[in-house]
């Protein structure tokens, strides 16, 4: 009789443990209990996740940029050369005019014209710089969202960011809220939440004041 009761208790225990394991597995697949769930070991970050019209590997990007830079450099050299020529012409003209004692009004007019040309060149350079920056924004953007970071236990460098899924696997002993910011103490590291690449990540920071 006693053995039957013991058998039932052991059986119930085994069933409970089995159910707990199933629940744990299901929770892990959901990514820590969130609706939907991010986890399961699958990365959401890749070259296509940014939905960009450019590519991280760049394809012809480097070549195209080098071409653009070279072309711009050539244009600038041409402009510089033109400026030098103009300056030279100015000097020669001035010498000739001095020698022939021509009216200095002509000289001043020429200087004004050269000044206007130089300013136009500067403006063109500026516009090209601005456009280049705009182009580089599209060419350079990369989508390192830090979602795929692996878990760290301790001693992680300041500024290192890990995904929420990785953070959930850490053993954190303390939570401190200071000036509206929440700090998480996990092992020997302190973490704060930060936005990166469209998702909330956990970044290693210095300990909060007093800790």
């Amino acid at each position: 009789m006693m053995s039957v009761k013991f058998f039932r208790i052991v059986s119930a225990g085994i069933i409970l443990v089995f159910l707990a394991l199933l629940w744990n597995e299901a929770a892990a697949r959901r990514g820590g209990g969130r609706a939907g769930g991010r986890g399961g070991g699958y990365s959401r970050v890749g070259p296509a996740s940014g939905g960009s019209f450019s590519s991280r590997s760049g394809g012809t990007r480097q070549g195209a940029r080098a071409d653009r830079t070279a072309a711009r450099s050539d244009v600038r050299q041409d402009r510089q050369s033109n400026r030098t020529d103009r300056a030279s012409d100015r000097q020669e003209g001035a010498s000739e005019r001095a020698s022939t004692r021509q009216d200095t009004v002509t000289d001043r007019q020429e200087n004004r014209q050269d000044y206007v040309s130089d300013r136009q060149d500067d403006r063109m350079d500026y516009r090209e710089d601005a456009r280049e920056d705009w182009q580089d924004y599209y060419d350079d953007r990369y989508w390192d969202h830090w979602r795929g970071g692996s878990g760290f236990a301790a001693g992680v460098a300041i500024g290192t960011a890990i995904s929420a899924a990785s953070f959930s696997s850490l053993s954190c002993s303390k939570t401190v809220t200071l000036a509206g910011a929440t700090y998480y103490n996990c092992g020997t590291s302190w973490y704060k939440r930060a936005y990166s690449g469209g998702s909330v990540t956990y970044v290693v920071v210095n300990p909060p004041p007093g800790y």
Binding site: W146, G159, G180, A181, T182, A194, Y195, S196, V203
Partner: peptide
């Protein structure tokens, strides 16, 4: 709602 920073601001 808690205000956090952009990671680029922290780095």
């Amino acid at each position: 709602a808690e205000r956090i920073e952009f990671l680029s601001e922290i780095r």
